[in-house]
């Protein structure tokens, strides 16, 4: 419980820090959103319009501290401003339209990759020197060393463009209507296969190799030999004694990797024109859409922090040394 409160406190402080940074950074940049908006119309707009825009974007000449608290308030109540590119759509509408695509695709593929990689790692470490142990590292290294976007391009060109097996772009087909109906869901799955394969192949190797190595280290520990000697059944020995300890560094790697994946899928979403947050972020940056960029950064930061919080909780469950204080070894 103490550990939980501690982590929760840390989560709240980090989100606050992210919000504050997000407030400060744009204000260090020259100009303001209204001027940029005005510039887009290249003088075809009267100066009064500037004032109107300033009001609409919530720009004010109030003291910084008042602006800051207004900002915090509107962030918490979900008023994140209006996008320029999709003016006058609000930022949260765009984000809530693209975030599920990224989290859905990435989340599912990640869970599969981590689970599959971890179990494969456990298995080949246990069968050390076996056929799989000698073959798997070569295959995984091959896929790990290929840049993901390049693999994505190759797959799009060969399977989609030349052979017409898979769609080339977008999250779903033109002919289906959004909703929980079979044509739509199957179209989504069909469109997600190639990006999923790319993400899976790119990340699974790391989990296999990482888990295999952790597992090898753990299997050499005295408590494993002791447990084997005292007659613990093999299955329990592998999972409860060895894998549970070998998982700990793996979970740390997961936490570290998670903080980069949401932003890191930009290239893949770009290649597949996938309507996720990475794709939106790229167009927001190229369109100098500051409110959208700000909102994106915020949502990426908060999502990452939340996922890390969950990982911390899992880690605490698995390792009593983190949860409870005690004599050091």
């Amino acid at each position: 419980m103490r550990y939980f409160l501690n982590r929760l406190g840390f989560l709240i402080v980090s989100i606050w820090a992210a919000l504050t940074l997000n407030f400060i950074l744009p204000r260090l940049m020259p100009g303001n959103p209204a001027e940029i908006m005005l510039a887009k119309f290249q003088g075809r707009m009267p100066p009064q319009a500037l004032h109107a825009f300033e009001l609409q974007f919530g720009f004010s000449n109030k003291p910084m501290i008042t602006q800051y608290f207004n900002y915090l308030g509107s962030m918490l109540t979900g008023h994140w401003g209006l996008s320029y590119t999709y003016y006058p759509t609000s930022v949260q509408t765009i984000i809530s339209g693209s975030l599920p695509w990224t989290l859905g695709l990435l989340g599912i593929v990640w869970v599969i990759a981590v689970t599959f990689g971890t179990f494969t790692g456990i298995f080949i470490a246990w069968r050390r020197g076996g056929f799989l142990d000698s073959v798997t590292p070569i295959i995984t290294m091959f896929f790990q060393s290929i840049p993901q976007f390049w693999l994505a391009l190759v797959l799009v060109y060969s399977l989609s463009f030349s052979m017409n097996l898979f769609p080339m772009a977008h999250g779903y087909g033109n002919s289906v209507t959004m909703g929980w109906n079979f044509p739509f869901v199957s179209s989504v799955v069909y469109h997600a296969i190639l990006p999923a394969v790319v993400i899976f192949l790119g990340s699974v190797s790391g989990w296999i190799v990482g888990m295999r190595n952790n597992m090898m280290m753990t299997l050499g520990e005295d408590y494993i030999v002791f447990a084997e000697a005292k007659g613990v059944p093999t299955r329990r020995l592998i999972f409860n004694y060895a894998a549970r300890n070998a998982m700990l560094p793996q979970i740390t790697s997961i936490a570290i990797a998670l903080s980069t994946i949401i932003g890191g899928q930009i290239l893949i979403e770009q290649v597949f024109s996938y309507p996720g947050i990475g794709f939106q972020l790229t167009s927001a940056v190229s369109g100098e859409d500051y409110p959208l960029i700000q909102g994106m950064f915020l949502i990426i930061a908060v999502t990452t922090l939340l996922i890390n919080f969950v990982v911390d909780m899992i880690y605490g469950r698995l390792d009593p040394r983190v949860r409870r204080r005690g004599a050091t070894s």
């Binding site: 520990e221 005295d222 408590y223 030999v225 002791f226 447990a227 000697a229 005292k230 007659g231 613990v232 059944p233 329990r236 409860n240 004694y241 549970r244 300890n245 698995l318 390792d319 009593p320 040394r321 070894s329």
Partner: peptide
Amino acid sequence: SMVFQSAMSALNPVMTVQTQIVDTLTS
């Protein structure tokens, strides 16, 4: 049975003493 040289590391760090003794018995 055997008592190992490295008592410090002969116990599984993520299991309680009870679980480790009970494991021996129930196995």
